[in-house]
Design a protein around this nucleic acid. Structure first.
Lengths: 234, 234
DNA sequence: GGAACCACCTACCAGATGGTAGACGAGGCG
DNA sequence: CGCCTCGTCTACCATCTGGTAGGTGGTTCC
């Protein structure tokens, strides 16, 4: 492994042969959890190191500074997120099924790595130095999504909206439904795995009735009654 | 003015006779801006004081600790928010008009005091000690909103949803559309006042088509074409 | 005039923060 | 063996953090 320079070597994400994840990856994992839930500023290198059973200086050996750690984390997380979305998109069908596939993949991420979406928010809040880095990686996906929505509207399958604002609305809703634990709690809903499934169902129904133009437009738009409403064994 | 105890005297929000806002209010204003945009942990009392042209100790004179300042700020902000929403609700009509009134009032707040919604998010992220305080004040409004949505669904004016999850979705969307400046920028939309109006229009159309059950359910659900699409002169 | 109070100040402090310098042991390799 | 690199450590450090102690000038009230 090569500690120098903020940019990690290409195999930094890979598992080492027979032994668990590399030190750099373990640090990134811990940083993801802490940055994504408690926040960047509220996380000290000392507390991070303590949770890892090492000294702060070891973290600074792998990542020359706290900011460099954040950048590396953003890079890795953006790649992971992009991959999840890409995969879902490549396997998805057409029209509404594509939207559904994306939403499902985001919820799958939320179930497996809840902090990843938290980090997304955090980075958005931290602004330019960090945010632009994230944007750079996710931009192609945004463009793809935007183009897709536009074509769906053009062909009359979806209601007309400003594609970018629609995208922002979908983003906000989905990420909010997943990350706003406190609001959830205030609403008397416990943030359990079961609740997450219900939230996904709800948001899909909501989006569907908001977006999809049924041919007759008169259908009752009932709940999907889709039996495969769990991602556990997808 | 009475500095002792975290609870400010009842006139702390009021303007003093002929001279600007009270010192305590000026501090709260600065705290709102900084907490709401940069975040609570990332804001130091020193930087806050510097922006106010005073010493940190003067802040600690009015608010015994940083946490007490946050609590006082939450109380004031919650009251302000609750008042805005209450007012909008009391003046609003029935059915969809009520939803529209609430959304409009939130956007009005966003235009006049952008950081207030940022603080809302921040408090949600900070969790229990602070979040419960906010919840306490806003809870009656949530109950009112929830009951309203439920009755609308009962009477067949709105699509059936879990009222609380629907509320969370609406909250996330509206607050996200207002506070996610970085995402906005990533989407190529500059966070101007004009853009804010467009976002409000878009979200209202979106919500309307998602929620409202037209009698025939077949109407084109066109854009509202409502001429009073600016809040500048209500 | 003087006591009391008010709003703000200077002078500190203990602890935490991100970061540097340098040593140490383990292992690879000529 | 001797040398070097790697990963981690101990020992510091300057700076900043929230917070305490104790003043100081001005106004109010008796």
């Amino acid at each position: 492994m090569s500690p120098p320079a903020g940019a990690l070597p290409p195999d930094s994400t890979a598992r080492r042969d027979r032994e668990g994840p590399s030190t750099a990856d373990r640090i990134l994992d811990a940083a993801l959890v802490s940055f994504g839930s408690r926040g960047y500023e509220a996380t000290s290198l000392d507390s991070l190191a303590e949770g890892l059973g090492m000294r702060k200086q070891s973290i600074l050996y792998w990542f020359p500074s706290k900011e460099a750690l954040l950048e590396a984390l953003i890079d890795r997380s953006a790649a992971e997120l992009a991959q999840a979305l890409q995969g879902a998109l490549d396997r998805a069908g057409d029209g509404w099924a594509r939207v559904e596939a994306v939403v499902r993949s985001v919820f799958r991420v939320a179930a497996q790595r809840p902090e990843l979406l938290g980090l997304l928010r955090e980075v958005g809040r931290l602004g330019p130095p960090a945010a632009t880095r994230l944007t750079l990686v996710l931009e192609p996906l945004v463009a793809r999504a935007s183009a897709f929505l536009e074509s769906e509207m053009e062909s009359g399958h979806m209601r007309r909206h400003d594609p970018r604002l629609l995208l922002l609305a979908i983003y906000s809703t989905v990420v909010g439904m997943v990350t706003e634990v406190e609001v959830l709690r205030a609403l008397g809903e416990e943030p359990t795995a079961r609740s997450l499934v219900r939230r996904r169902q709800e948001i899909l129904r909501l989006l569907r009735s908001a977006l999809v133009l049924e041919r007759g437009e008169g259908q009752p738009a009932t709940r999907s009654a889709d039996p495969r409403d769990s991602w556990d064994q997808e």
